[in-house]
Simulated scan of single mutants.
Amino acid sequence: MQTRGTVGQRGDEVLAQCPGLRRLGEDSCREHEAFQGVGNQVLARGPATVDGGLGPELPQGKLVTATSPQTVLALICSGDFGAAVAAAVAEPGNFHEAEIEFAGDALTHPEISDTLSKASGREITAVSVSWEEQEQRLGAPMADGQIWNDHVGYPARPHHAARYGLTTTTFEQWAAQQDWTVPAA
């Protein structure tokens, strides 16, 4: 099964070995097929938004992941999606049947934790755990998604959105806008 053009042979091999990843690939393929021939529609694909949370251990100074420390992650802010929708509605001709790999930044987990440390004024460390540990902590779908990033990932990079005149928020900009007050226990 070829899930999308950017997955390629290596991605197909990984999907064949991992049922959870195969499900993620099939979902991506169905979304792409549903989009085909729709007309004046825009498909903006991107990773999970950074606004969705960075893990329950963040208040304790840990960014825990099953993703390899060397894996570059495409990152996007939910506000950037809203701005893209507004631009597509305002100028439909510029976005006719566009497929945009949408990201505001591309960083590794150690780079993410460094950025969070600077923005929050406290030490945040990237911690790598096994898939099994992550499944215990957050469930199989989250653990599968993190392994997906290692083996397949999202090709989205900021310059893809820039081709359409869209500006995106870097992770550093996003982090600087957050309230890093840790609630008292």
Rank of each mutant, 00 (worst) to 15 (best):
R22P: 04
H151G: 03
P183R: 09
T6L: 03
V14S: 06
F171V: 07
P47H: 09
Q70G: 14
W131H: 15
P92I: 00
K118D: 07
H159G: 11
G46P: 01
Q134D: 05
A162H: 13
F102S: 01
T125I: 12
P59F: 13
E31P: 00
G53T: 14
E57V: 10
A185K: 08
D51N: 11
S28P: 00
Y164L: 03
I76V: 14
Q146E: 15
R122T: 08
L166E: 02
T65C: 09
G46Q: 00
S113E: 09
T169I: 08
P155F: 08
L138S: 12
L15I: 13
E111S: 01
V89W: 05
H160N: 13
M142W: 11
Q70D: 15
A103Y: 03
P69L: 03
G104F: 01
N40T: 04
V127M: 01
A44Q: 02
L166A: 09
H96Y: 12
A34G: 12
D51C: 00
G55R: 08
D80I: 06
P183C: 03
P155T: 11
A103H: 04
S128W: 08
G145P: 00
D27V: 15
C18E: 10
G25Q: 03
A74Y: 08
L73G: 07
C18R: 11
Q9A: 11
R30K: 08
I76P: 01
R30H: 09
A16K: 12
E26F: 13
Q70E: 15
Q146P: 05
H159I: 05
P92N: 00
T167P: 00
V14M: 06
T169N: 01
F35M: 13
T65A: 14
M142T: 07
S128G: 09
H32R: 13
E172N: 11
A83G: 06
Q173E: 15
Q134Y: 04
S120A: 15
D144W: 09
T168E: 11
Q177T: 13
L166I: 10
K118S: 14
P155N: 11
Q134V: 00
I100D: 01
A119R: 12
Q41M: 00
T3H: 06
E172L: 00
G104D: 09
L43R: 00
F35W: 02
A74G: 10
I112R: 01
L24G: 05
F95S: 02
D27T: 13
S120C: 10
A176Y: 05
G37P: 00
G79Y: 02
R163T: 07
D150F: 05
A161K: 04
S28L: 07
S113L: 11
T108P: 01
L21V: 14
F35D: 02
H151M: 12
T3R: 09
Q134W: 05
A126F: 09
A98D: 01
R137V: 08
G37M: 03
D12E: 08
E101S: 04
H96M: 13
D179E: 05
V152C: 14
G165A: 07
T6H: 10
G39L: 04
H109N: 14
A126E: 09
P47R: 09
D105C: 12
G25A: 04
Q178F: 00
G121E: 03
A16R: 11
G39S: 07
P69R: 06
E123R: 15
P59K: 14
V64G: 06
A143Y: 06
L43A: 08
R22G: 06
L15F: 10
Q178L: 11
Q178W: 04
A34Q: 13
L43D: 02
